[in-house]
Amino acid sequence: MSTTVLTGVCPECETDLTTPPIVPGETLSCPECLLTLRVDDIDDGRLRLRMVEVTLRDWGQ
């Protein structure tokens, strides 16, 4: 695949997004609504994004 830029839409605020190469599982912050979005899948240069939590009560590291 020669695409170096991937595109998608924020599922929360519908802003068009472009990202450098990224793989499923990685997260990014929507520049418009600031929510954390996870790449669930990439299909032909199009990102499928999902909003994910940034912290929950049962998290530990």
Partner: peptide, 10 residues
């Protein structure tokens, strides 16, 4: 198996 790929997972 993780909720996301972060710094460590990468």
């Amino acid at each position: 198996v993780a909720d996301r790929i972060g710094w460590e997972e990468r």
